[in-house]
Computed example of a mutant assay.
Amino acid sequence: MTHANSDGRDRLSRWRLVLGGHGADGITTAEGQRVVLSAADHLRDRALEDLYEAPRKGPGGLGASSPRVARWLGDIRGYFPSTVVQVMQADAMDRLGLRQLLLEPEMLRTVQPDIGLVTTLVGLGRVIPEHSRETARAVVRQVTSQLEDRLRSKTIQAVSGALNRAARTRRPRHQDIDWNRTIAANLKHYQPEYRTVVPERLVGYARRSTEVQREIILCIDQSGSMAESVVYSSVFGAVLSSLRSVRTRLVVFDTEVVDLSDELDDPVDVLFGVQLGGGTDINRALAYCQEQITDPTETILVLISDLYEGGIAEEMLRRAAAIVGSGATMIALLALSDSGHPTFDSNHAAALAGIGVPAFACTPDLFPEMMAAAIERRDVGEWAATHDIVTNHED
């Protein structure tokens, strides 16, 4: 009975924390006893009150005191589990105007790093004061390193395997013949009287693995809505650039185009080289990427954008059609993120699909498989359909 009463009080205490103070102070047990918060729950209640009962982006609550904000962020990490902390941090960005307070290095050291915080810092990028910049970079590096650890092996395995399969040829030079696969492919031609296989089809590798076999261009829209996609793209760019058999370019754009390919070995340098927000000129970005294509049949161009074109839409579509017509593989990712259904221009997505550019959103965990399908020259649109990630053409 004591245990049951304890469980009941715990549930009421949680309701008391959810509902907040004032009227919620009147919550009572079945016996009519008023619910009194423990010392630890009182601290949690105060932290929640500071966030959710403070005026939005104004005085009160945490106020504009950076040291107090730093203490609050440090406190909630001790009061709540990690998943709750991340939700509260995200809410605090808007409710308390923390985007400005995040410019202070002493507060950055107290924040629990996650991809949401990284996108905030990337958005602030060029306005972060010099004395805060190294702290901000350290926070971003911690998150990108974790993402790279999570995604590297799967990406390398998928891409390398696809390159090996795609490099096989039916007319290999003698020294490039893969005899095991050749025999397996020709067992039906076994000649019992000669006790041998007469191969009708030779299987081999046309190139050495150290040679560049594919050109990959990641063309990334750096408008504010694409922030999470920019973070993941920088990580994948770093992983792909480490493969000698792939030449990777990373291009970011708004109304201007910036080639960050020389920074690819460090995702942090890439992220602090972008400027989130501003207009969008996809046509201009595709024009630049088109100029970089030297061998169309070996090139994969991945446009990562919500397709809200601020430039000349008709010209954008004509240029995309020309890229596909040249023999290059082009894919439009409406988002590369773990987030929900993306917002995008459905008319442009449908128009691109109509000229052979599949348009859909993709999670980071599926991105390696998508690249493998593109490398093997499989139908990427069909691949997306089999993985139930075809995006409905709706805004």
Rank of each mutant, 00 (worst) to 15 (best):
A4N: 07
D7C: 06
R11V: 09
R16F: 01
L17F: 11
A30M: 14
G32A: 11
V35M: 06
D41M: 07
H42W: 11
L43Q: 12
A47I: 07
E53G: 13
A54K: 13
K57G: 10
S66H: 08
P67V: 09
D75L: 10
Y79A: 02
T83I: 09
Q89G: 04
Q89C: 01
R95N: 10
Q100D: 13
L101G: 01
L103S: 03
G125L: 09
V127H: 12
E130C: 03
E134H: 15
D149N: 12
V159W: 07
L163K: 12
P172H: 07
T182R: 06
V197W: 13
V198S: 14
P199D: 04
V203Q: 05
R207I: 06
Q213W: 07
S225N: 03
Y232Q: 04
R244C: 13
D254G: 15
T255F: 08
L260P: 03
D266E: 12
V268R: 08
L271P: 09
G273Q: 05
G273F: 09
G278E: 09
V302N: 03
A321T: 07
A322S: 13
G325K: 06
A332V: 11
A335Y: 00
G340A: 04
N347L: 11
A353P: 00
F360P: 05
M370T: 08
I375F: 14
V380F: 10
A384W: 13
D388R: 14
